[in-house]
Amino acid sequence: MNKKKVLFFIYQMGGGGAARTFLNIINNLDRSKFDPILVTLNYNGSYEDELKSDIMFIKLETKRLRSAILPLAKVIRNERADIVFSTIPNYNTIAILANLLSFTSAKNIVREAAYLGGSFSANIKLRGYGLLYRLSSKVIALSKGVKKNIAKRYKVNPEKIEVIYNPVDVDGIQRHIDNGEIAEEHKYIFDGDAQVIMTAGRLVPDKDHETLLQAFAKVNNKVNARLVILGEGELEVFLKAKAEELGISDKVHFLGFQHNPYIYFKHADLFVLSSIHEGFGHVLAEALAAEIPVVSTDCRPGAAEVLNDGEFGVMCEVGNAENIAKKLFATLQIDNEQLMLMIDRGKERAYEFDAKTIAKQYGEVFIRTIDRGDRS
């Protein structure tokens, strides 16, 4: 069969979850069936160095998303793309409009990664995205809960929506652990008798680090512990002040973005996710792959699906510092035999999201969409 060209469009190959997902799909897509093309705006991203060398990588000569429509349409036309694949509503909008203006037979497939909406104004905005999504051939939801949300709030026909979980490069994570090393200036955190609790994610309201700090303060009253926070974001100054207010600033370590977070995961005693909402909870799957026990809020829909309602990790209440602290403390007290069982089961679960498996599922959707030859 002739290889099909799949054009992946994203803002930049930066440090976010969407870029990591694209990286895992593109690198693991079957090259006997597909030629991948990656298109971004004119930004440098931290994941670019990890792209396989056979990937055609095009940067548009603009840093403005709205200015990308015509240049992207030109690339779609010149490269004769069969599929235009994008993720996140704003980028999906640009990809759909660009494809229409390319005047080609390329099919749009859009991916929705977040559980959005709730307020009146937000729901109206999602209806607008939904009108555009109807012009696509397929909508990919990264969890069953996200699929229900797209059908309900975007008003997209459920039959047009397919669930494919986030890809996790399990073997790649292990390579990062085997070949990685904690930065010299951070090694003291993991030395000594303190038990290290780890979290990773953008420092934004939805991740609810404030409640996590309150919970950690309670845990710190019972055991000798440290909290390591990986990630950057708008709330960094506020959260550091909060740690100072709670009297735990000497025990809380804000380490920013780390290109290899997995070596930090491996050396910690426990991973915690305190989010209010998660479409999937990609970092939970990565933590399971890194062989670290997991405690997570029951942030719907993602965490419940990744951990199968507590089968592969400990679940606690959203926004409840007392309950989070209780579950953190209890998990830190688990004996070695139970701990190893928990870690082994978690690693098995992570392989269910392995990048090779997920990339194959995407490939099957790409082929079906091309063969169907319509936009319905």
Rank of each mutant, 00 (worst) to 15 (best):
S119R: 14
A114D: 09
L227S: 01
Y262I: 11
G45T: 11
N78L: 12
H282Q: 13
T21S: 12
R80L: 08
L270P: 01
Y129T: 00
N2V: 02
E232V: 06
K52E: 11
Y188P: 07
K5H: 06
P261H: 06
S67G: 04
D35G: 01
A217K: 15
P71R: 10
I55T: 15
V294S: 00
H259C: 06
V196E: 11
K240G: 10
V219Y: 10
S121I: 14
I76A: 09
I334R: 04
Y351F: 12
V223A: 13
L239P: 12
A217M: 12
L255K: 12
V75T: 10
D49Y: 14
A217G: 11
K218T: 05
V295I: 02
F257P: 09
Q338Y: 11
L38S: 09
N92I: 00
A243Q: 00
K218M: 11
Q214W: 04
N90D: 01
I96H: 00
L29N: 01
Q361S: 07
F265I: 04
F265M: 13
R349P: 09
K33S: 05
I263P: 08
K326L: 02
S137D: 13
E184P: 09
L288S: 06
P89Y: 01
Y154M: 13
E311W: 00
L135D: 10
L23R: 00
L339E: 14
K5G: 01
G118D: 13
R226W: 07
L307G: 00
M56Y: 08
N44K: 08
I276S: 09
F280R: 02
D371V: 03
R226E: 14
F366I: 05
Y188C: 06
E236G: 12
N42Q: 04
F190V: 04
R31S: 09
G16D: 13
G15E: 13
G319Y: 14
R375C: 14
I197V: 15
S136H: 07
H186P: 09
Y188E: 14
K218L: 13
E236P: 06
E245R: 15
E181G: 14
S249T: 11
D374F: 12
S137C: 09
N308V: 08
E184A: 15
K74F: 08
A241S: 14
K3W: 00
H259A: 14
I367T: 15
M315R: 00
T21K: 06
V294Q: 03
K52L: 09
I88G: 04
D82G: 04
G15R: 15
A200M: 11
D54M: 03
Y362Q: 02
A321Q: 05
N166P: 10
P205L: 07
F353H: 05
I173Q: 01
I177G: 12
E352S: 06
I109W: 07
F34W: 02
L116R: 11
A68R: 07
G346I: 05
E305I: 05
S143A: 08
L65D: 01
S46N: 12
